[in-house]
Amino acid sequence: MASPPDIQDRTRAKKEVRRIKNLPTVPGIVAKISRIVENPETSVADVGRLISQDQVLSAKVLRMANSAFFGMSRKISSIPQALIILGFEVVKGLVLTSSVFDMIQKSMAGLWEHSIGCAAASGVIATYLGRDDAEEVLVAGLLHDLGKVVLALNLPAEMSLVREKVAQDRLYFHEAETQVLDFDHAEIGQWLAEHWNLPESLSEPMRLHHRPEKAVVKPEWTAIVHLADIIVRAIGFGNGGDLLVPEISPAAWSLLGLKKTDFLPILENLEPKLASLRDLTALA
């Protein structure tokens, strides 16, 4: 195993991650979907056929679509049906997530569980607030920590250092990242989102879930993912690398308009979903 790099050599580490060829390429299927939807004549059936060609991927997408995430009373049995019921953006998000599932599993033990936990919590909070885009907010929650995947796979030695600092110095993960690298997984998430041409509705929560007060495109989504991340860490579902619960942004709390008494119904709505999501911990 290589020895940890000099932690002063942050410039080298930064260049390593910033080199585009070090960022994972967007999953082929997601690139194809993005291309065909640029054509205004593309139908839902066309997109459905494209995704359905990959049976393994389709099976993963349908498992997620039928999971406790969405709590559908009726089983979704095909990709075209998923597109109609959940909408294109949600299905595209599930395709993206399913495509990078193996990468997430390899990167950090517990990160996949943390991601699906945050997704579930984002959906629960959005529904509790009466929003009609809860499924889309859920996808933002699912992808919020993709930057950690890139860090773990591209800079494993730095990742070890970060984890040591978290344990020894009682730092938050993003604080330790900043000390070791001069940047954190949220910034890496932004580079990845740009590289993959993801919409701002997804890239903003990836970039700002630790500083939601800076969000301008989707401030409510970002605030929801920020709170969901905190709640899932507090419950201890999965492992995003943090040992400690971070403080909530006062601006995000104020924006959401929640009261302290809302924690109990949110937790009670979330518990059965987390229990039911066990079957998604092995998506393969």
């Binding site: 009682r170 938050y172 905190i230 709640i231 860490r233 507090a234 201890g236 040992l243 400690l244 619960v245 971070p246 403080e247 909530i248 709390w253 302290k260 008494t261 924690f263």
Partner: peptide, 16 residues
């Protein structure tokens, strides 16, 4: 232990 860095006046104490 998870809430060790959360100050007493934070809204998150209600969550804890």
């Amino acid at each position: 232990a998870a809430f060790a860095r959360i100050p007493e006046e934070s809204v998150l104490i209600a969550l804890r």
